[in-house]
């Protein structure tokens, strides 16, 4: 999980995408499919987490900009 945290959103999303693509192929063995699905679920959580952090960052940043403007 730690390793994943350091990856960027785009990297995580791309990994997720290719994981889903390969899982959709008919020839995947069931154990492999279990693993892929598990990993994909993990990545979705990571991506969602990154998005909500970004949302908070943007909110803080724009609030700061507006405050600076109001001060002027």
């Amino acid at each position: 999980m730690n390793e994943t945290k350091e990856k960027s959103y785009t990297e995580c999303f791309n990994e997720l995408k290719s994981l889903v693509d390969s899982a959709a192929e008919g020839q995947v063995e069931i154990d492999e499919l279990f693993d892929k699905v598990k990993r994909a679920k993990e990545l979705i959580l990571v991506c969602k987490d990154k998005l909500s952090r970004t949302e908070v960052d943007i909110e803080l940043l724009t609030r700061k900009m507006e405050e600076m403007q109001a001060e002027n």
């Binding site: 959103y9 889903v20 959709a24 892929k36 699905v37 979705i44 991506c47 998005l51």
Partner: peptide, 17 residues
């Protein structure tokens, strides 16, 4: 991005054995 993620999430559920 959230929409894309939730679509992928649903798709994974379909694939989930």
């Amino acid at each position: 991005e959230k929409e894309k993620l939730s679509m992928l999430d649903k798709y994974i559920d379909l694939l989930n054995p």
